[in-house]
């Protein structure tokens, strides 16, 4: 059974690109438009990996990570940030919140799927 990835981004075109790339690599993708939407969906369906943007209306990426880490079944699930932010201070905040990696946009599909494969197979 294919692994499930929760892809969170407020940009519709970015979500489309993520879903296209991850599905082509054989993953099942659940899309969410912001942190709150992601949190609701994460509670309904278990994801094997979460890929989230940082700057989103409502709940941002860092708040989402903290909320997910507070859920019993998301304490060890790999969470990657995919964002335009590239500053060391933001990366440190992401790491402290519980992120497992930091990817700077724009992403290259081959490199993205390589990282995902490394984390969840």
């Amino acid at each position: 059974m294919s692994k499930t990835i929760l892809a969170v981004d407020d940009s519709g075109s970015l979500r489309q690109m993520l879903t296209f790339s991850l599905k082509a690599a054989g993953y099942r993708v659940i899309e969410a438009v912001d942190g709150q939407d992601a949190l609701n969906k994460a509670k309904l369906q278990q994801a094997d990996l979460v890929l989230t943007d940082q700057n989103m209306p409502g709940m941002d990426g860092l708040s989402l990570i903290k909320a997910l880490r507070g859920l019993k079944n998301y304490q060890t699930v790999p969470i990657l940030m995919l964002t335009t932010e590239s500053g060391d201070d933001m990366k440190a905040k992401g790491r402290a919140a519980g992120a497992n990696g930091w990817l700077v946009k724009p992403f290259d599909p081959a490199r993205l799927t390589e990282v995902v494969k490394k984390l969840i197979g």
Binding site: Q54, N55, T83, T84, E85, S86, G87, K91, R95, A99, N100, G101, W102, L103, V104, K105, P106, F107, D108, R111, V115, K118, L119
Partner: peptide, 16 residues
């Protein structure tokens, strides 16, 4: 400013 990118090249990847 949240967008520092000056080119449309794929960005860095860092695993913690």
């Amino acid at each position: 400013s949240t967008v520092k990118q000056r080119h449309m090249e794929s960005g860095d990847i860092e695993l913690f």
